Computed example of a mutant assay.
Amino acid sequence: MRRDVFQAIADPTRREIINLLAQNELNLNAVADNFEISRPAVSKHIKILTECGLIVIKQQGRERYCRAELKKLKEVAEWTNLYREFWNEKLDALGSFLEDEQTK
């Protein structure tokens, strides 16, 4: 299944994992310790985040460490900016309309 960054951030647990790893690089057990779900469930979330390029895992000895790769979130920021600009224009137009109505 092809996954994208939007699918990855749609889940609140995955967003929290990204927030956690944005602060520190952690091993898989340390990530799982922050959640009240099973380790296999956390592993599944990490797998999805890795497939989307939001997390990079590197092996150090016997441990696997996760690190957030936040550059991929730029795609989300660009997409939301399109709608921010759209709504800013609409709200500015509404503000102008209301000001015109008040002066009449």
Rank of each mutant, 00 (worst) to 15 (best):
A93D: 00
R67A: 15
G61Q: 02
I57T: 12
D100P: 01
C66G: 11
F6K: 06
A32H: 09
E89W: 04
T80D: 00
K90Y: 03
I46K: 05
F86T: 03
D92G: 03
I37A: 14
K90D: 04
A8T: 03
P12Y: 10
G95H: 05
E51C: 10
T50C: 09
M1W: 06
N24G: 05
W87N: 00
L91H: 02
Y65C: 06
T80M: 02
N81C: 05
D100N: 14
K71I: 12
R2M: 10
L70M: 08
N88Q: 06
R15Q: 08
E85V: 02
L26A: 08
L20R: 06
L21R: 01
M1H: 08
E99D: 06
E75N: 11
K58F: 08
M1P: 06
E99F: 09
V31D: 01
E99S: 13
L26S: 06
V5P: 00
E69V: 09
N88E: 00
A22L: 14
F6T: 03
T50W: 03
V42A: 14
L94R: 02
D11K: 09
I9R: 05
N81T: 02
E25T: 14
K90H: 10
L49R: 07
D33V: 12
N81L: 05
V42D: 01
D33G: 11
R15Y: 08
L21W: 02
A77Y: 03
C66E: 02
A32E: 01
A41D: 04
A22R: 15
V76D: 01
I37T: 07
K47C: 10
Q59G: 06
L20M: 13
I55N: 01
R15P: 06
K74G: 10
N24D: 15
E101N: 04
E69K: 11
A30G: 07
A41N: 14
L91W: 01
V5N: 05
T50P: 04
L73A: 13
F86Q: 09
N27T: 12
E78S: 11
I9P: 01
A22Y: 13
E25L: 11
R3F: 12
E63R: 13
L82V: 12
L94A: 12
F97K: 10
R15M: 12
I46L: 15
K44L: 09
A68V: 11
I46W: 00
E63Y: 10
V5D: 01
G53S: 08
N81H: 02
E69D: 13
F97D: 00
E85D: 02
I55W: 00
Q59M: 09
G53R: 08
A30C: 09
A22T: 14
L70P: 02
L28Y: 05
F35T: 11
K104R: 14
A93C: 06
